[in-house]
Design a protein around this nucleic acid. Structure first.
Length: 556
DNA sequence: GCCGTTTTCGGCCCGACTGTTTTCAGTCG
């Protein structure tokens, strides 16, 4: 059993306990344990072999027993008991935005509804509003929430899909006679939302590959098996397709299966792919097609094909261009790690600098820093910097943009910092004019350098705020403010199209992981993919610059 | 359910918003 599966069960237990109205602190303990296990650096099975499961912070004796039981048997008795008591449909209902455990229990007890379908029917029939504490508005919110959920069920975030796809590919490479296996389709193109996990495999013996697919522990269901493909579901409920080709067909198939449908049709139109057999790389495939090599992220038919024909594609930014990172959190606010730990992990990423940008004072829930704490943190950073060679921690803040567009610290405080990211974390539902004016006011503040996660979207969970993006881009260009591509896979905000437009206007971009955990630093690659989808060049992305140049740009 | 200790029991993140209400409950971040 993998860490992810154990975490999934612990989280399900938290949900079921909550639905049963159990002690909220007990619920929180399970949720916290799930989070810890999910982010654990080590394989739980190894921890178990060292007899050290109970030493993990937040895992006490009872949770330790349950986790060990899961590792030994694949489940645990307490989990199975809860599943007997709590209908699966109630758990499904929890994923409807705006519905919590209390409302779900109210509906279940009042109307006996235990499925999303039943809930939708009752809401349409106007039965929900008759329950105590419920009204017409709640009813329509439920229907809207179910609609949103159905949309999100169709796609999963790149952050969920890509690691699973990579692990699956690795497993497939282990089969005898497999020459290559690689995620293709929208994952390889770095799309923020992915419909299914496509893996291309090159092998002499297709049967071996089919056997290897069936032996993968995360396969939940196999739906269709053809001569050269297998379709099914990976845990939990992610669609996959494995496409098998002969080794001599690998590279042109890689190009074929990576591009979007429109790209594929245009590039391969009237071509006989037989002539592309036996090539040794994708570069050769493009050469044969009479095209400049097009990076996977650009294969969307968004203007790249004519550019490739005329050999005039821009050279886009690469992960190896990134010299440092400008937006992370620590345990001074809601991050998991200390300043020192984050610095060490940034150095392991090969970075020369890292900006510490914890939350500002009004974000109480996230442990926002008072001005005094911020100054104390600055001193701690100065102290750490004395010991680094070839690496610098920057003193920064992710300061809240308040409702009226003013910032959560006075200018006197802000001007003492190396960099200031201004972000919105409240009042998401202002009308467009007010929201736009609020952000522009922050852009006009001379102490602000970067606008964080501009549109506020949370993929599959929350749409962007109502905004006039063009007005904001104009203001950012005028005031030389940097826009962030927040690389967190739930955000990827700004998206590729805003980024592309911004770069065309001369606005510089920072790609930031927004890490709340050392591991999250790795999210940066998703932001780089988004930048590449937006055709950004190295020059457009400030964290490819050396630190001196960044500081000059901020403080001129 | 976990943790810490002045240690086996008491505390554990809290404010804003929404929708239902006439003063609050539920959800979210």
């Amino acid at each position: 059993m993998t860490n992810r599966e154990v975490a999934w069960i612990l989280n399900a237990m938290a949900d079921m306990l909550e639905l049963k109205n159990d002690n909220p602190y007990r619920v929180r303990a399970y949720r916290k344990a799930a989070h810890t296990v999910y982010h654990l650096d080590e394989d739980l099975r190894d921890v178990y072999l060292r007899n050290a499961v109970g030493e993990i912070p937040g895992i006490g004796s009872r949770m330790r027993d349950q986790i060990e039981e899961m590792l030994e048997t694949g489940s645990c008795i307490f989990f199975e008991q809860l599943r007997q008591e709590v209908p699966q449909g109630l758990l499904d209902m929890l994923s409807i935005p705006g519905l919590g455990h209390k409302t779900i229990r109210n509906i279940y007890q009042g109307l006996g509804i235990d499925s999303i379908e039943g809930l939708a029917q009752a809401a349409q029939a106007g039965k929900i509003r008759r329950l105590p504490g419920m009204g017409a508005k709640t009813e329509s919110n439920i229907l809207a929430g179910i609609h949103l959920l159905k949309q999100s069920r169709e796609k999963i975030t790149l952050g969920l899909a890509a690691p699973v796809a990579e692990d699956f590919s690795l497993h497939l490479k282990g089969a005898a006679g497999v020459i290559a296996a690689e995620p293709v389709g929208s994952i390889r193109r770095g799309k923020p939302l992915v419909g299914d996990i496509d893996i291309l495999v090159a092998a002499e013996d297709f049967k071996q590959v089919r056997v290897q697919v069936a032996s993968y522990s995360q396969v939940q269901d196999v739906k269709r098996v053809g001569q050269d493909f297998i379709q099914g579901l990976l845990h939990p409920n992610m669609k996959f397709e494995v496409i098998i080709v002969k080794p001599e067909d690998y590279y042109h198939s890689l190009t074929w299966t990576t591009g979007s449908k429109e790209f594929r049709e245009l590039v391969f139109q009237d071509r006989d792919r037989k002539h592309l057999k036996g090539l040794k790389s994708e570069e050769e495939v493009f050469r044969q097609l009479g095209l400049q090599y097009i990076p996977p992220e650009m294969r969307e038919n968004k203007g790249e094909i004519p550019k490739a024909i005329s050999n005039s594609l821009p050279v886009i930014v690469e992960f190896s261009d990134i010299l440092g990172e400008l937006h992370v959190h620590t345990d001074w606010s809601d991050g998991a790690h200390s300043l020192q730990d984050m610095a060490v992990m940034a150095q392991k990423m090969g970075y020369a600098f890292l900006a510490i940008t914890d939350h500002s004072q009004s974000l109480h829930i996230s442990g926002g820093l008072s001005p005094q704490r911020l100054m104390d943190q600055g001193q701690a950073i100065d102290e750490l910097n004395r010991h680094f060679r070839g690496f610098t921690l920057l003193k920064g803040s992710e300061v809240d943009i308040l409702k009226d567009g003013t910032l959560d610290y006075h200018d006197e405080i802000l001007k003492q910092l190396d960099l200031v990211i201004a972000s919105i974390h409240s009042h998401f539902k202002l009308e467009a004019g007010q929201q736009t004016a609020r952000i522009i006011k922050a852009i006009e503040n001379p102490h602000v350098h970067i606008i964080g996660h501009l549109t506020g979207r949370l993929l599959n969970r929350r749409p962007p705020y109502e905004l006039d993006t063009d007005q904001i881009l104009a203001a950012a260009a005028e005031h030389h403010k940097v826009l962030e591509i927040n690389a967190h896979p739930d955000r990827l905000d700004i998206d590729e199209s805003i980024a592309r437009k911004a770069a065309q206007m001369g606005i510089k971009i920072a790609i930031n992981s927004d890490a709340h955990h050392g591991k999250d630093l790795k999210f940066l690659k998703y932001g780089v993919m988004t930048a590449r989808r937006g055709w950004l060049k190295q020059e457009d992305v400030i964290n490819t610059w050396d630190l001196g140049r960044i500081m000059d740009y901020f403080h001129r």
